[in-house]
Write a protein that binds this DNA or RNA. Structure first.
Lengths: 229, 229
DNA sequence: GTCTATATGACGATAGAC
DNA sequence: GTCTATCGTCATATAGAC
């Protein structure tokens, strides 16, 4: 748990290179997919330490030892899940936060995409949140290379938009974290939100109201361009 | 862990009413304070499941069994820590988000206070985040009564400010969650922020830049009043 | 390749000496 | 009131039968 992962990636599935293990067969792929899906649910519910391999096995409908056979240790399984999540996590920004778009259109599309992620894959969002809360030891290399470059590209986009007078100058890192924290709250803090609204679980209308609130904060900011000219 | 707590509070320290336990003595108070402080650090680092009573005992400088003697089970200790945190958590809003203040002054003071909390008690913020991620089972009653009323008071404040044309109409629940998620990110997501900035830990300048970004989003929103009149 | 049965170790909790 | 030594439980991991 405290061990540092190899710098190449999030800790890719080690089992494929294990000595003595032949090529993946047909049943293996189905089992692997079921285990990964179950792991995402269970890790998302309880975090790494709180989750037990037993529960993942039950949820996936496979015998417990098969998980170790396919994925090695619990931590290696966890890293496989993390890697899947991060691949998804970065996608939307390259579609929306690019200089070719109008600023308002870009922000709106991106924020909608992030809210959709919170609604459709809340477990994935929570696993990421747990990992970051723990100090992000398993993904530090990824954050300080891939994610940092990702933010740098957004900074160039904002720079262009600012020169074109579509938005005021702003610290790009902190604007991105503001957007991420607000949108991810609808997955990570959903228990708190639903307790306050009184709804047992978050309803579509909650996501819609949250989306509108975030849009008004961020798009309203773009309007400030006149005041600061 | 899955058991529901009595509806009276977060699950107050049960040890005081234990049969056969005399009144608290003098050394007890020092030990209890040390244990609570250590528990806040350790639970904040690893969450409930990830933390071990052993580590808390080491950190507090007391033998492990004393923790059980003072606080009963690990979960009861955890609930004591949670209760301490929540008391602090609500304080600032009653100082700042009240109709007597100007809207801009109120939002600025409140956001500064929340950022100060993230900087000064990051472990407390993280414990709360872990608990909410887990589904908030230990604090559900508290969230659906105390916190809900707390939000309702903010809603009345915003209503007044809106009538006085100091800010546009907005959904108060989602505005509060936007502010909470943005400010708490500087404790809960600090590992991610520092990985992106390249600083080993968050520096004062990071908190300041974050504060300015959040202020511009929220105070800029107040300016929108003219557009929507 | 797959699964049953078991080894190993860590943790929470307590009994009982001081 | 305080602490040493220990018990029972449960989870990860593996050895070995099929």
């Amino acid at each position: 748990m405290t061990e540092t992962l190899p710098p190449s990636s999030v800790g890719r599935a080690v089992h494929r290179t294990r000595p003595g293990t032949p090529r993946p067969g047909i049943p293996r792929q189905a089992a692997e997919a079921a285990i990964l899906a179950a792991a995402e649910r269970v890790f998302g519910l309880h975090g790494f330490r709180g989750a037990s391999v037993n529960e993942i096995a039950r949820e996936a409908g496979v015998p417990k030892p098969n998980i170790h056979y396919y994925f090695g240790t619990k931590e290696e399984l966890y890293c496989s899940v993390l890697e899947n999540i991060m691949t998804f996590w970065l996608r939307d920004a390259d579609d929306w936060l690019v200089p070719e778009r109008r600023a308002r259109e870009g922000f709106e599309g991106y924020i909608r995409a992030k809210m959709a992620f919170s609604r459709e894959r809340p477990d994935a969002s929570r696993i990421f949140a747990y990992e970051v809360l723990q100090g992000a030891g398993n993904i530090h290399h990824y954050l300080s290379t891939t994610l940092r470059e990702h933010v740098a590209r957004r900074a160039r986009t904002f720079e262009v938009w600012h020169r074109e007078r579509q938005m005021p100058a702003i610290d790009p890192v902190h604007l991105m974290f503001a957007i991420w924290s607000m949108t991810q709250a609808y997955a990570d803090m959903s228990a708190q939100i639903s307790a306050v609204t009184g709804h047992a679980v978050l309803h579509d209308s909650d996501f819609e109201a949250g989306l509108q609130t975030i849009l008004r904060l961020v798009l309203g900011f773009c309007n400030d361009i006149e005041d600061r000219a």
